[in-house]
Structure formats: structure tokens, C-alpha cells
């Protein structure tokens, strides 16, 4: 869907992006991950031709961006910014209607679509005639997402979409985000500097440093087979994830406590799963029932976290 071939960009003397190449398959989510200033935003903006690469090419749907009218290109790509970038002089409904209007949709169609998005993003219905400054940060960000989704573009670019939110709102929106049907079939490229977020949301992670790719791969690959010391170092702070990854459910079984018997969607055999994959699944659902022989334990991500903590303290004590 998106194919990037050796793109470079230099501002004055700062080399922002150097010989970058990657592919994003249809329906896949790629995360551009790295510390601040490593060239993530620049890379993202070259995808929808907000920035023209000095060298190299970007292909969207097999067409070279250089040969496509940039406005037409952008009409087919949703864009979400860190600070929402809503038009302060437009109402929420008007903001959400921008792209459909540029595409000359009929009024009635626009109205239906707006209502639909307001519902899907859990926004209050009276929000339509409000102005952006009257909204909370979380609402503004949701409207920003709604605006990008309005014309149902196949591709969505997001630059630190949750970066400006407080942690509670961020987690709430993030979990909504994971379940939003609108996003399921979209090709998404998202920028973040938050490793946790990257691992939660990405099918692929492109780890960047000083304008170059350190490693690109699935979260698992990055954790299991870091290509260099740098990658290792970058993920060092994320030892938790690493330990989740390496720990089997069997090892931690004694520490796991059941939280009761709420209804569950999924039942897993503890023999066959790693702690990490259970955590992954818990991102999409609240409760999971684990089975080991005849024992049954219902867990949440929090209860698993507790178990892990206990396990770690126990092991620390014996050493």
C-alpha cells in the first residue's frame, strides 16, 4: 500500500531523514518509533507529500507521489495531529465535514456520516454546534480522529495522536482506538516516542535513530532478535515487556489468583501460552479464563501484573 524507497531529507544542515526504506502492507499498522528529533514527523509528512523528499521516492497504491497531484493524494489519506489542529472558526460538525465537502459530498450524506462518527467515537450528540475551544482535550482529539476518518480514507497517518493527553484519557482513547471498527481495515502509519504504545498498537515497528532505521519488524522480532546494541538499549527500559515475553504461564501459575467468575470471551490453555500473548489479548478484552489441567483462573491484565510482581519479589528473595 505504501512503499518508501531510500528517502532522504535535509533541512539547512540538519539531516532529518537518511536513506529510509520500508513497506506497509494493506490493513497493517506501522509505528515509527524513536526519540524526539529522530526524524519521525519528517518521514510521516513525506508520505502525504507535505514534505518533498530530497532524494528517493514514496509510492502510495503503487503510484509515485511525485507524479500525483498532492491535493488529490491527501484527500485519500487521513491525517491526525498531536494537537488536533481543528479549525477554531469551524464548529465540530463543520470541522468533520471539511474533507467530505472538498470531495463535494451531498449535504445529507455528510450529515449522516458526521452523526455516525460522533456515535462511534463516543462523543456527546450536542457537540456538533460547539467550537473546538469548548471541548476537553480528549474530545478534541477524538474529533481530530473523526475528521481524519470522515471520508473513510484507506490510509491514516497519525503524528503522536495521544501525545498531548493526560495518562488516563490517553489509555481510554487508546483502548477505544483498538476496538474501533473504522480502523480495522485501514493502513495506518503512526508516530510515537512511547515504546509501550508502539508495542500495544503496532503490527510492525520501525525503530529510528538520527534519521535512520535501527530495526524494522514485529514487536516480537524487536524483542527477541535485536539487531544491535542500540536496539537493545532502546528497549532496555522496557524490561517488563521482555520479562513478560520470556516468562511462561506455567512458571508464574502459583502466583496467579483468580478474580472470580465473570463472563469471559476466551478460554486459554496455560500450557500453550506465554504471559505476553495473554497480555496482548487482554488489550482487546477485559477477562480471560486460563486453564491448567483441572484448575481454572479468571484474570485481567491487572491481576496478571500483580502475579508478575509477586513472582519477581519471590525470586529476588531467593537470590
Amino acid at each position: 500500500m505504501i512503499s518508501v524507497k531510500k528517502i532522504s531529507k535535509t533541512f539547512d544542515k540538519t539531516i532529518a531523514v537518511k536513506q529510509l526504506s520500508f513497506n506497509v502492507a494493506e490493513g497493517e499498522t506501522l509505528i515509527l518509533l524513536g526519540t524526539s528529533g529522530c526524524g519521525k514527523t519528517t518521514t510521516l509528512k513525506m508520505l502525504n507529500h507535505l514534505i518533498t523528499p530530497d532524494e528517493g521516492s514514496v509510492f502510495v497504491n503503487g503510484k509515485d507521489n511525485k507524479l500525483v497531484n498532492p491535493e488529490e493524494l491527501r484527500l485519500g489519506i487521513g491525517y491526525v495531529l498531536q494537537n488536533h489542529g481543528l479549525f477554531p472558526h469551524y464548529t465540530i460538525a463543520q470541522n468533520m465535514a471539511i474533507v467530505p465537502q472538498l470531495l463535494k459530498w451531498e449535504k445529507e450524506k455528510i450529515r449522516k456520516r458526521t452523526d455516525e462518527l460522533i456515535e462511534k467515537l463516543h462523543l456527546p450528540t450536542d457537540i456538533k454546534n460547539k467550537f473546538p475551544y469548548q471541548l476537553s482535550g480528549g474530545q478534541q482529539q477524538r474529533v481530530g480522529l473523526a475528521r481524519a476518518l470522515a471520508a473513510n480514507p484507506p490510509i491514516l497517518l497519525m503524528d503522536e495522536p495521544f501525545g498531548a493527553l493526560d495518562p488516563i484519557t490517553r489509555n481510554k482513547i487508546k483502548s477505544e482506538f483498538l476496538t474501533l471498527d473504522e480502523l480495522q481495515n485501514k493502513t495506518i502509519v503512526m508516530v510515537t516516542h512511547d515504546v509501550q504504545e508502539a508495542f500495544e498498537l503496532g503490527d510492525q515497528i520501525c525503530l529510528m535513530d538520527e534519521g535512520e532505521i535501527l530495526q524494522i519488524g514485529t514487536p516480537k522480532e524487536l524483542l527477541e532478535k535485536p539487531k544491535s546494541e542500540k536496539v537493545k538499549n532502546f528497549l532496555k527500559d522496557q524490561q517488563l515487556q521482555l520479562s513478560l515475553k520470556t516468562l511462561s504461564l506455567l512458571e508464574i501459575w502459583p502466583q496467579i489468583e483468580s478474580i472470580g467468575k465473570p463472563p469471559v470471551q476466551e478460554v486459554l490453555d496455560a500450557n500453550e501460552h506465554h504471559l505476553w500473548s495473554v497480555f496482548e489479548k487482554l488489550a482487546n478484552q477485559k477477562h480471560i479464563l486460563l486453564k491448567l489441567k483441572k484448575e481454572e483462573k479468571t484474570v485481567t491484565s491487572t491481576s496478571l501484573m500483580w502475579a508478575l510482581e509477586k513472582y519477581k519479589t519471590l525470586n529476588d528473595g531467593t537470590n
Binding site: 491535493e71 488529490e72 491527501r74 491525517y79 495531529l81 489542529g85 471539511i98 474533507v99
Partner: peptide, 22 residues
């Protein structure tokens, strides 16, 4: 606000649309 202008452009507005609408 630079973000507003960036958003306008990123949504596919032409330069003259950015000028007159934003």
C-alpha cells in the same frame, strides 16, 4: 497556529482554499 495550517493542507486543501477558508 501552525498545526491548523498543517491540518488544512494535509486534508487536501489547495493553497487558495487554505487562504480563503482558513
Amino acid at each position: 497556529d501552525a498545526q491548523v495550517l498543517e491540518a488544512a493542507k494535509a486534508m487536501g486543501m489547495s493553497n487558495s482554499q487554505v487562504l480563503t477558508k482558513v
